[in-house]
Design a protein around this nucleic acid. Structure first.
Lengths: 248, 248
DNA sequence: TTTATTTTGATTATTTTTGAACAAATTAAA
DNA sequence: TTTAATTTGTTCAAAAATAATCAAAATAAA
């Protein structure tokens, strides 16, 4: 019974019970208390548990289940149709912006073999494209764990340094009144992307069309093309406003 | 019974039981313990298993691009010692730079529960720290798939916008003649990190001490502290030059 | 064949791990 | 508050594992 094995047992026990007791563990593993104490101290030193008198407690429940993955898995069929159509718009040599939307993320699988440059603030996009023909540029700044992406002042400045041929973006809602976002950070970066690309595509499944939520941040006019599976009558209005609409 | 055959048996056993014991294997194969130990050390050096006292354990398969894992898994024990000592230097509230070295990567596991800001160009570091108490800032710019990291002009400019309390860096070699890197990109970003942090730590295992390869890019003076497992006499020279040396 | 190289094993010294004993610190109880 | 019980850190010693050194055996090369 070596340290590595005891470490595993102790951490397993912590995950189950939330706490461990020096005496109990020592008796159970048939090993001296001083050794268990030394183990706990070492693990506490590495930040793997909190030391208490007589034992240890679990350290903060850090494991945030990958919300992003779940979100990306919703409405997959529609999203994939949208993305396949969007990928058809991308040509060899394009420089494209991709934001951190869950629909935009699914675009990755359709562009892996294209010789293009992708500039993105989404870490999942980076993972997905890192072993492909796509050349990647990561937007720097403060990382938001929930969105798995970078936002903020530095990010916006970074975008402003580049000029893309096309931007593929998501929003939280779009209606005849404009574009809506869940947060100011997302709104800002979406605007920055749109402002620094020659052509701006909005990828949105039917759940987003006509939806108005939280923060209106821009007019329809900053969008050139909408790619969607929606059959909403709102689309006719978008067309009338000069926005190209691709229905899949 | 040659090394190849023993290697096969050892790795098979590891896959089945998750661990092996020097004494048991030695008895079973009717071969001396010292030979088995040598085998295990070699396999551990190749990152194929994790050496423990009295045996070895299966290496936990991280879900990180393989190229990176293999490199990071070499010389694990020394690197972990180095990183534990390095982590001791980090205090609540610190703002630290971390580069894309394989040793620096292993620092992650020891700082997950620290309330600090980490600014990094390494995507594996981001991945490893994303669900921790650490607040992350990603350095933007062109992504290099081989190094799993960002380098270049934008990256250097990004770094220049920040000021860190401490930088933890790797190099490809260090000798009395200065610091050596594998590429200009790495050299530039290392210098940028060092220039914009109050204190610069170099994490390097013994294989890097005294090594001079490819490109000399800086003097010893840009380093404040070296953390290493080396016992080279070169260390005395570093100390004479005013560099603090922490030997683990 | 002889000679060099590599691999293996035995011996010894060193390091690491562990446990016991006791003093210091902490918690609980009176 | 004071006292008792528990937990902890420290020091030291024993045991186990390891590394280092060198010699023997196996293998490859000339």
């Amino acid at each position: 019974m070596n340290f590595q094995k005891r470490k595993q047992i102790i951490l397993d026990r912590l995950n189950i019970d939330g706490e461990v007791d020096v005496k109990l563990i020592a008796a159970e593993l048939d090993i001296s208390e001083i050794t268990i104490r030394r183990d706990l101290n070492q693990l506490a030193g590495d930040g793997l548990l909190y030391r208490t008198h007589g034992g240890a407690m679990k350290v903060n429940p850090l494991e945030i289940p990958h919300e992003f993955v779940n979100k990306a898995a919703k409405n997959v069929e529609a999203k994939d149709k949208i993305c396949r159509a969007a990928a058809d718009q991308i040509n060899h040599g394009d420089i494209i912006f991709m934001d951190c939307g869950s629909t935009v993320f699914r675009l990755c699988q359709f562009i892996k073999s294209k010789k293009i440059k992708v500039i993105t603030n989404s870490i999942p996009v980076v993972y997905e494209l890192q072993n492909s023909l796509v050349s990647l540029n990561i937007i720097g700044g403060e990382f938001n764990a929930e969105r798995q992406a970078v936002h903020g002042t530095m990010a916006n400045e970074h975008i402003a340094r580049y000029k893309a041929t096309k931007a593929f973006l998501g929003v939280d809602g779009i209606s005849r009144n404009g574009l809506f976002a869940n947060s100011e950070l997302e709104a800002d970066i979406t605007q920055a992307f749109a402002a620094h690309s020659s052509k701006t595509y909005l990828l949105c499944d039917d759940s987003k069309i006509g939806k108005e939520s939280y923060l209106k941040f821009g007019e329809l006019s900053i969008i050139d093309t909408i790619v969607t599976n929606s059959k909403s009558e709102e689309l006719a209005f978008f067309r009338k406003k000069g926005v190209e609409v691709i229905v899949v």
